[in-house]
């Protein structure tokens, strides 16, 4: 893996278009690539693949393990099949598109960017999400948007349950148009209606303060 990532970084620095064959579902495929480039991975990848990247467009023709695209700064990841838990965790920018289903904690602690899931997502989707947008075209599991700070989660199918301090808000027409336009970019022509979930903001502050804490404000 060390040799593969070194080679990917070197080629990416040249702005090359790269194809990786027989990735073998190995963990940490394509970590820390900081240059704009195109990478095609012909097969499934393991945990942390395409993580900590800044700039590249990576297409993976297969499945992915946990934490696909973790802490991406910018760029684009397209996964044709399913992803495990914590897909797009902590990303600060860029887009992650998953053609299949994703596991638990999708978009956990997202700080920007977008996660688009064509299928279903597991429990705790958008847990402690801070910014950005999650679009789930199928169903979302239990506790959607638990403890989220900001950002929006759109679910077209069934919402298992809302998480702590997550609330449903009406999506405006402009917002729906924007979501549909995003889906169109990934070849999804349907225009489903969505449940929009945002923070209720009740967890922003302590319920009460001590004398000195009050004095500090």
């Amino acid at each position: 893996m060390r040799a593969l990532n070194r080679r990917l970084k070197d080629l990416a620095a040249e702005g090359a278009e790269i194809t990786v064959t027989n990735p073998g579902a190995r963990h940490n495929t394509g970590v820390g690539i900081f240059h704009p480039c195109k990478i095609n991975i012909e097969g499934s990848v393991g945990y942390y693949s395409a993580s900590m990247i800044d700039g590249p467009e990576i297409t993976i023709h297969g499945n992915a393990g946990w934490a696909l695209g973790e802490n991406m700064m910018s760029g684009k990841i397209v996964l044709t099949k399913d992803a495990g838990a914590s897909v797009a965790s902590t990303i600060r920018g860029g887009e992650v598109f998953v053609g299949g289903n994703v596991g638990a904690r999708a978009g956990i602690s997202m700080k920007g960017g977008a996660l688009i899931v064509k299928g279903n997502s597991g429990f705790l989707t958008g847990f402690m999400m801070q910014k950005g947008r999650i679009i789930v075209c199928g169903d979302a599991g239990e506790a959607v948007g638990d403890s989220m700070y900001e950002g929006e989660i759109y679910v077209a199918g069934n919402v298992g349950s809302l998480g702590n301090d997550a609330v449903v808000e009406d999506a405006s027409e402009d917002e729906l148009l924007d979501v549909w336009a995003t889906l169109e970019r990934y070849g999804i022509a349907e225009r489903p209606t969505f449940t929009k979930i945002v923070s209720g903001k009740k967890l922003y502050h302590m319920d009460s303060l001590e004398r000195l804490e009050k004095a500090a404000i």
């Binding site: 893996m1 070194r6 820390g32 393991g46 993580s51 934490a67 973790e70 965790s89 956990i108 402690m128």
Partner: peptide, 25 residues
């Protein structure tokens, strides 16, 4: 948060450590 967003147990931690090694060459 109290838990890491992308790994839970020690087996996952091993993969996380490898990721950080890859990210720092």
């Amino acid at each position: 948060p109290a838990r890491h967003p992308d790994w839970l147990g020690p087996d996952d931690l091993a993969v996380k450590i490898e990721q950080l090694r890859e990210a720092t060459d």
